[in-house]
């Protein structure tokens, strides 16, 4: 899947921001099951990286100056 237009870019950025907030919160919290927490963070980070890549591909392709945040 790839971002097709600016609306999709905005939605993808919103989803990325939500994910990054979840990751940051999880890293601050104590884990009842350290192994499970590690798997959870790995799963969320793979999504974060996927969205970051999609944003960079789109913004590079359209010549936009935006960067993922």
């Amino acid at each position: 899947m790839s971002i097709q237009n600016d609306l999709e870019l905005a939605v993808t950025r919103k989803k990325l921001r939500l994910l990054e907030e979840r990751v940051a919160a999880l890293r601050r919290q104590e884990a009842p099951n350290a192994h499970m927490r590690e798997l959870t963070l790995r799963s969320l980070m793979s999504l974060v990286n996927q969205l970051r890549e999609e944003i960079v591909r789109y913004t590079a392709g359209t010549g936009a100056r935006s960067i993922p945040h």
């Binding site: 999880l26 099951n33 499970m36 798997l39 959870t40 799963s43 969320l44 793979s46 999504l47």
Partner: peptide, 9 residues
């Protein structure tokens, strides 16, 4: 494409 996560996530 598998995500393994805790209950809240």
């Amino acid at each position: 494409e598998l995500k393994i996560v805790e209950a809240e996530e």
